[in-house]
Structures are given as C-alpha cells and as structure tokens.
C-alpha cells in the first residue's frame, strides 16, 4: 500500500480554510489522487454531533478529524483537514501521530475575518449570543513552524491554493505538474525537435 498524507488547514473562523482546501482538493483529484476533505463544521454535524464549544470539546473535535485523517493517509488517500484547531499542542499531537503531515496556516487579520463573517459567528459574539470564539475571547495559538503560510487577505484563493500545491511538490509529496504529463505541448515538441535536429540526434 502506498502512503498518503494529510494537509491540515488551521486559522481563524472565516480566514478562508475551507475555500482554499476545496481548491487544493479539486486540483489533487484532477492529478489523479484519491482525496477526502474533512471540514470542521461538517464533521460537527455527524462524527462530532453533540460536542459543544468548550476547550475540551473543541479539542475532541480536532482530534477526531485528525484520527480519520490518519486512517485515510495510511491507506493511500490524501486527507485534507480544515478546522480552526486553535491549540498548538493539539496540532503537534496530530503531526506526530499522522507522520506525513503538512500544516497550512491560513493567516488573516481578525478585522478582515470579522468583515467576512460568512457564518455570523463574530456577529453573534458581538451580540453576546455566544462566547469562546478563537482569536477574540478565546486564544488562537499561531503555528510556529508550519510548512505553508497563506495570507488570504493579500492573496486570491487560487494563489493560496497554488502555494499549497507548490509546497507539496517541493516537499516531495506530489510530482510537479510537468511530471504529471508524459509528453510535451505542441510548441515544446517543436522546440525540442529543432534542438535535437541541430545536434543530428533526430
């Protein structure tokens, strides 16, 4: 069985984790990989149904996603986890348990996340309807040494996805795009034919 790997997106709510993770998943699928995307919010609706937002429960949710990623990775699948996962210790635990682990820090200033607020979390907090939002009234511990740092306030989602894919190539997890196709484009073929012909090789 060939090994897979886990790409783990961490960052504040509305930083863009799910958006970029979906683009990365799509590209990996097109390159022929088997891919599963485990989104924190989605997982809460099934695998982690009933868990609340206490530190313990949020940790539990992250560890459950991580455990599934581990199972998938060791069975040759690319597992993509996208969850706030605010605690460094928990993420490091995932890294050591999973092994082939690529941490992607989706960095975005809190102000920009508040403006986006797709799920209305920040609004609810402001209205006092919820508490314990990472980065606001609860800590978010930034990764110290992630494999990739995205700046989603400054990059398009496509640029961020490209950064992740380049990192995966450079880390040796996936072949560069060129290596995925065996041939040359028509234009490249003509360049090569001319070069080889001038050398008397064809």
């Amino acid at each position: 069985m060939q090994e897979g790997f886990t790409v783990w997106f961490t960052g504040l709510t509305a930083a863009g984790k799910t958006t970029v993770a979906r683009l990365v998943a799509k590209e990996l699928l097109e390159r022929g990989f088997k891919v599963e995307l485990l989104d924190g919010d989605e997982v809460r609706k099934n695998l982690s149904q009933g868990l609340g937002f206490s530190k313990e429960d949020r940790d539990r949710n992250v560890l459950r996603i991580g455990y599934v990623c581990k199972l998938l990775s060791r069975n040759g699948i690319v597992a993509i986890g996208a969850a706030v996962s605010p605690f460094k210790e928990t993420r490091e635990r995932l890294r050591s348990e999973i092994g082939n682990f690529v941490e992607v820090y989706v960095s975005c200033p809190l102000g920009v996340c508040r403006e986006r607020d797709y799920k209305g979390i920040y609004n609810k907090l402001q209205e006092g309807r919820i508490s314990g939002v990472s980065g606001v009234d609860d800590p978010y511990e930034e990764p110290e040494n992630p494999e990739v740092i995205l700046r989603t306030d400054q990059e398009t989602a496509e640029e961020s996805a490209a950064k992740v894919l380049t990192a995966l190539e450079e880390l040796g997890y996936i072949a560069p795009r060129a290596a995925s196709s065996s041939g040359y484009s028509e234009e490249e073929r003509l360049i090569l034919e001319k070069r080889l012909s001038e050398l008397g090789y064809i």
């Binding site: 060939q2 090994e3 897979g4 082939n100 040796g172 997890y173 072949a175």
Partner: peptide, 8 residues
Amino acid sequence: MVFWKPNR
C-alpha cells in the same frame, strides 16, 4: 504516491 519519504 509519496515520491520520497519527507524528512524534516
């Protein structure tokens, strides 16, 4: 799938 085992 993994080309070489990444090594930190």
